[in-house]
């Protein structure tokens, strides 16, 4: 699978299995418009592997990656502008993906990662790496876990130019919401 865009966090921690594989994802970037209302840019192209840190650490090694080329807003022109003008996915290596690393879980037991908590991490997007923090909700699902995570993102922090077009724009702070499954 190609690399990917935004991204999230984690999975289980000190469970018996050494690592978790992410898949079956629904990643949404909720973009509030300057005129009111909002639209989603969404993709299912999230992947990656996370491995619980050693000992009692709440850190997760590995990364989650989202393919920015697959982001879809439901409008062709909006997709073109999003990918080519603002995310500039062809600008250089790594611009076509968003990657989350250095994930740390809070308020969750790494040995039994169930329930609501929070996380911190590092997001690399548009050639810039910044810290992120948000909420996470983990529930068991089948043989794995279902993860829901969200966090805000300021476009200007990542050097993304102000989205404006014919008098309409997207506000600087967008919200990332991701749901995905993790399995051993």
């Amino acid at each position: 699978m190609k690399p990917t865009l935004i991204t999230l966090l984690f999975a289980g921690a000190a469970v018996a299995a050494p690592s978790w594989n992410a898949g079956r994802a629904d990643v949404r970037v909720i973009c509030p418009m300057t005129t009111g209302g909002s639209f989603d840019a969404s993709t299912s192209a999230l992947g990656g592997t996370l491995t619980p840190g050693a000992g009692a650490s709440s850190a997760l090694e590995g990364s989650l990656v989202v393919d920015l080329r697959t982001l879809d807003t439901g409008i062709g022109l909006r997709n073109e502008h999003l990918r080519e003008t603002y995310l500039e996915i062809d600008k250089g290596p790594g611009f076509d993906q968003a990657m989350v690393t250095d994930i740390n879980l809070k308020d969750l037991n790494p040995a039994a990662p169930q329930g609501k908590g929070s996380f911190t991490g590092s997001l690399t997007l548009h050639g810039v790496t910044k810290s992120i923090a948000g909420g996470v909700d983990v529930r068991s699902s089948g043989g794995g876990l279902q993860v829901r995570a969200s966090f805000p993102l300021n476009l200007s922090d990542y050097g993304i130019r102000e989205p404006r077009y014919l008098g309409i724009g997207v506000r600087n702070t967008v919200q990332i919401e991701a749901t995905f499954a993790v399995t051993h």
Binding site: T35, G36, G37, S38, D40, G74, I75, L77, G167, I168
Partner: peptide, 27 residues
Amino acid sequence: AKQYTRCTPCHYSPTGGGLLTPYGRLV
């Protein structure tokens, strides 16, 4: 269906209808 919950991106009037904005025309 195209994720437009408000009238104002495409219409000048906040209650909708009438002349399209440049963005509305392009869409």
